Amino acid sequence: MIDTPALPVKLTARQQQILELIQNAISRTGAPPTRAEIAAELGFKSANAAEEHLQALARKGAIELVSGTSRGIRLKQQRTTVTDRAQQLMLAIPGLSQLALPLVGRVAAGSPILAQEHVDQTYHVEGSLFQHRPDYLLKVRGMSMRDAGIMDGDLLAVQSTREARNGQIVVARLGEEVTVKRFQRTAHGIELHAENPDYPTIMVAPDEPFEIEGLAVGLIRNTMLM
């Protein structure tokens, strides 16, 4: 579970419960829950009740709410995301870093994701920023995962693996293309869900070429590195 930040104002029992639910969702799937998911998990009659508690948590400094997205919840001092200037400095000072992560830019069709020709540069990143150790950073292209807080140009921290659980955000290879989507295995095959209603769900039939390249374990907003 992601560490709880030190808060200036004491939380109520219900607020603490919601904060822990958010932390666990991010740790498990790489993204915060929606208001509807919070309401369903805690037995609220509507998503509006969840919204009221989230607003209270935001006022107390436990979270930050991002307008315009269904999953627009960010933990203050969240360890999987670079959120303040002190953490940005860790990226720039090799003496404070523990991980040297290659940044993968555009991936050529059909070749390994970590092929040397795909690596744009290497970032030295403080390892404690991540709950799970990443193996590389992938530059996000497009806005298909916008509502999960993953924007065009962001650097997605990825842990290499061939396995994923339903609901996790994965880096997947479909034939000669690499994409970032939310993974769902069904009785009929694999579904890759976007977090943006403008993008369709990708249906992968059992006989189609498909491979999981890794799991999303953190995010670095690229503008913070400038």
Rank of each mutant, 00 (worst) to 15 (best):
M1N: 07
D3Y: 08
T4A: 15
T4V: 14
T4Q: 09
P5C: 10
A6E: 07
A6R: 12
L7G: 05
P8K: 15
P8C: 14
V9K: 12
K10F: 00
K10L: 09
T12W: 11
T12L: 13
A13C: 13
R14M: 10
Q17D: 13
I22C: 04
N24H: 11
P33T: 09
P33D: 11
T34N: 01
A39E: 13
A39F: 13
A40S: 08
A40R: 00
A40P: 01
A40M: 10
E41K: 06
E41M: 09
L42N: 00
F44Q: 06
A47H: 12
E52F: 03
H53C: 02
L54N: 08
Q55E: 10
Q55W: 04
A56T: 03
A56R: 09
L57A: 00
K60M: 05
A62W: 03
A62C: 08
I63T: 05
E64W: 01
V66N: 03
V66R: 10
T69Y: 09
S70Y: 08
S70K: 05
S70L: 12
R71N: 08
G72S: 00
R74Q: 02
L75G: 03
Q77G: 12
Q78A: 13
Q78D: 06
R79S: 15
T80W: 07
T81F: 05
V82G: 00
A86W: 14
Q87S: 15
M90K: 14
M90C: 15
M90N: 15
L91N: 15
P94K: 07
L96G: 06
L96H: 09
Q98E: 15
L99A: 14
L99T: 15
A100V: 13
P102R: 03
G110T: 02
S111I: 12
S111E: 11
S111P: 01
P112K: 05
I113G: 13
L114R: 05
E117T: 13
H118V: 10
Q121Y: 13
Y123G: 06
Y123W: 10
E126A: 10
E126S: 09
S128W: 08
L129V: 07
L129R: 03
Q131D: 03
Q131H: 04
R133M: 12
R133N: 08
P134I: 11
Y136S: 05
Y136G: 07
K139R: 09
V140Q: 07
R146G: 00
M151E: 04
D152Q: 08
G153W: 05
D154I: 04
V158C: 14
S160L: 14
S160V: 12
T161S: 11
I169L: 11
V171D: 12
A172R: 03
R173W: 00
L174S: 04
G175P: 09
G175M: 01
E177S: 01
E177T: 07
V178N: 00
V180T: 03
K181I: 04
K181G: 03
Q184H: 01
R185A: 07
R185S: 11
T186C: 04
I190V: 02
I190C: 00
I190G: 01
E191M: 00
A194F: 00
D198M: 10
Y199W: 06
Y199M: 00
Y199N: 01
P200Q: 15
P200G: 11
P206Y: 02
E213M: 08
L215P: 08
L215R: 04
A216W: 12
V217L: 11
V217A: 09
R221V: 14
N222A: 14
N222E: 12
N222S: 15
T223H: 12
